[in-house]
Simulated scan of single mutants.
Amino acid sequence: MPLIISDEELREAGLDEREARIELACRLFDIGLLALWPAAKLAGFSSRAPFEGELRARDIPIYRPTVEDLHEDMATIERMRARQRR
């Protein structure tokens, strides 16, 4: 089902169609409903880099490490230290 936003509504928001797509994609990424690449495609980009720039401009973090990521990193560091001691 297509989403239709009238030209009048876009004007009221101060956006053109391209800007609205980018804004929507950034917000959907920010709240976790879209991953980076699907959001970049929704925004109309053919690569991730320009979309990442749009996220940075809005102070939206691109990477969101979890506690599990931290534990994995710490385990990796321990393994590396153990190898160095051998």
Rank of each mutant, 00 (worst) to 15 (best):
E68Y: 12
V67C: 01
W37Y: 07
S46G: 08
R64D: 02
I5F: 05
E78I: 14
E19K: 13
Y63W: 07
A57G: 06
G53M: 00
P50A: 13
F45M: 06
L10S: 06
S47F: 09
I77L: 15
R48D: 12
L28D: 02
R48E: 14
V67N: 01
G14L: 01
R79H: 02
L24R: 05
L70V: 10
L36R: 02
A43M: 04
A40I: 04
R64F: 07
E72G: 00
M74G: 00
P50D: 12
D69Q: 01
A20K: 02
K41A: 04
A39C: 09
G14S: 00
D7F: 03
I22W: 08
E8G: 05
R27W: 10
L70A: 12
P61I: 04
A40S: 13
E78Y: 10
A49I: 13
I60T: 10
L10Y: 08
M74W: 07
L33K: 11
A40C: 05
G14R: 01
S47L: 09
I62L: 12
D16S: 11
G53Q: 02
G44T: 10
Q84F: 01
D73K: 13
D69P: 01
E54F: 02
R48H: 06
T66S: 15
P38G: 03
R58G: 10
R21T: 04
R86A: 12
G14W: 01
I31C: 11
R81C: 12
L34E: 07
D73N: 08
T66N: 12
L34N: 03
A57I: 02
D69R: 01
L15K: 14
T66E: 12
E9P: 00
L28W: 04
E54R: 07
A39I: 08
P2N: 01
E8A: 13
M1P: 07
D73W: 13
L28Q: 06
R79P: 01
D30A: 15
I4L: 14
A13C: 10
G14V: 02
S6I: 14
V67F: 09
F45E: 05
L34V: 06
I4T: 12
E19Q: 15
E52Y: 07
G44F: 08
V67M: 08
A25V: 04
A25R: 02
L15R: 12
M74A: 11
R48G: 11
D30N: 13
D7S: 09
L55V: 11
A82M: 03
I77P: 05
R64G: 02
Y63R: 08
L36I: 09
R86F: 07
L34R: 03
A13D: 04
R56L: 14
E19G: 11
R11E: 08
Y63D: 03
S6T: 15
L70E: 08
C26V: 03
F51T: 07
R83K: 15
R56Q: 12
I31T: 12
P61K: 07
L24M: 05
L42Y: 00
F51K: 06
S47W: 11
L42W: 01
W37F: 09
F51M: 06
A49K: 15
R86S: 09
F45D: 05
L55Y: 13
R86C: 04
V67Q: 10
P38N: 01
L10T: 08
L24F: 03
R21C: 10
E12D: 14
E68I: 09
E12Q: 14
E52P: 04
L36K: 04
